[in-house]
Nucleic acid binder design. Structure first.
Lengths: 263, 263
DNA sequence: AGAATAGTGTCTCTTAGACATTATTAC
DNA sequence: GTAATAATGTCTAAGAGACACTATTCT
């Protein structure tokens, strides 16, 4: 290890001596764009596989702080909604030799890493999954030390992911679906002003289920948390939809006890 | 360490060389007895504090298997419903010197442990919480190497617990409350035959909320999963209640998609 | 005018919640 | 009989879901 200072950019190797061994954190970062629920993924330098943004825990870090640090480094955003959902601890979950066997790992690039780093990333990790909700438009994602680029993927067009990262995403979605009535999805995933159609599509993507338009609108508006703004003129040959924004204090209060919806 | 074999009893020190450092598992084991929701706790040998049944993860263990092993060792039961709910990773969550400062730790007994063990239990642990539902009547709990006895506590009369174990229990209860419609509480916590009153009290304990008797009964029976048996004659001067048992396949199928109740 | 989508209204059926009535049981 | 608790029934209000109708926008 050349550089032992705490990494804040993608250029610096990580600081193994000051990290807890055997534990990592992975973030399923959700966004909503072009009427689609999306996830931010990174492309590994030494393979054709994609990975969740993740990282390690400093000895001086609480685990939640580590997750938040990783999230902020990748997205350039602060004060994001972040929530732990599950810890993945199977013995063989991150075996590198499986990646070798499947010929998906570029050995040359892998062996260009120093030995300590190779040993580190080859060891068993128990990883804790967090999910975050962000506004894609206001973020500027960047890759980390082990990855060459990052990209948003629609949740039903995910690429091949390393290790058990596909399972991690599935678990995050299951968790969000069950706890939907208690999670601040609308206010964190949608832009400040949005249409009912956008809100409905967001719910449909999460629930994997079509909802009836007029009933959805009636139920949502009845909550009393949506403030109607001016209309949005799209230029298309139909009635322009109203834009809405959210009364944040009321919304937060509401989801604390759970919206009593069945969908 | 004198004994390096895998511990299956309370008499043997643990096998540090074959354990993953820095990670542990804690189980919130729920039971229901005398119309009360209860939790199984152990009393530490070297302090007046109580602790959740917990343990460590062998290098050859999946984390879920470790939790199941710990659960089975403590309760003498197999095939128990077990579910992970949260991982606790604060830096200072298990500082022993805090216990020293609060004079709650018996230094003599602590220093009677060998140095490796002392060092081990003094180090930082990230612990993953699991909860289990068991039938108290059919279990025979026993303490582990670090504890002198175990006891069932009603969830609203919990003693002082070590570290953040009170928080862990609270988190488990919050999780169960939110996911109640998706969890097999009735079939795992109640005896094979039970009355509607018992079922209702179980729900009330979990939800921390009184429910209306006749409406509760109507809603529950409408699910079509309760089979009415003979009456239970208690000897008291009132109408004897019917006993019910559960149609297990239907029940499992039902909670897969969640019971659509609001309480 | 016509096509397309937004917004609102109506109807039926189900459920929740409050409360009343009837049924058992031991004394 | 009486006291106590169980089981069932009744009523009202609210909600879900299906679908119809009106409103607005641009071509």
């Amino acid at each position: 290890m050349i550089n032992k200072t705490r990494s804040k950019t993608e250029d610096i190797e990580f600081d193994i001596d000051n990290l807890i061994p055997g534990n990592s954190v992975d973030c399923v970062i959700f966004g909503f764009e072009n009427q689609q629920l999306k996830i931010l993924l990174l492309k590994w330098k030494f393979s054709n596989l994609w990975t969740l943004p993740g990282g390690f825990i400093y000895k001086t870090d609480d685990m939640d702080s580590a997750a938040r640090r990783i999230l902020e480094e990748r997205t350039n955003l602060e004060n994001i909604f972040l929530n732990q959902f599950h810890t993945f601890g199977n013995m063989n979950r991150n075996l590198l030799h499986k990646a070798f066997n499947e010929k998906k790992l570029d050995k040359n690039i892998f062996y260009s890493l120093d030995e300590e780093t190779r040993k580190w990333i080859s060891s068993r990790f128990i990883t804790t999954g967090y999910f975050a909700f962000i506004d894609i438009k206001s973020s500027s994602p960047k890759p980390d030390y082990l990855s060459e680029k990052c990209e948003w993927f629609s949740i039903d067009e995910l690429p091949n992911l390393v290790y058990d990262h596909n399972d991690i995403i599935k678990k995050a979605l299951d968790y969000i679906r069950i706890q939907l009535n208690y999670l601040p999805v609308s206010i964190n995933l949608l832009p400040h002003k949005f249409t009912m159609q956008q809100l409905q599509k967001l719910y449909e993507d999460i629930l994997k289920k079509k909802l009836e338009r007029s009933n959805f609108q009636r139920k949502m508006l009845k909550l009393g948390i949506f403030i109607r703004m001016e209309k949005e003129y799209t230029g298309s040959a139909n009635k322009a939809p109203y834009l809405y924004c959210i009364d944040k204090p009321k919304y937060i209060e509401l989801i604390k006890n759970g919206i009593g919806f069945t969908y």
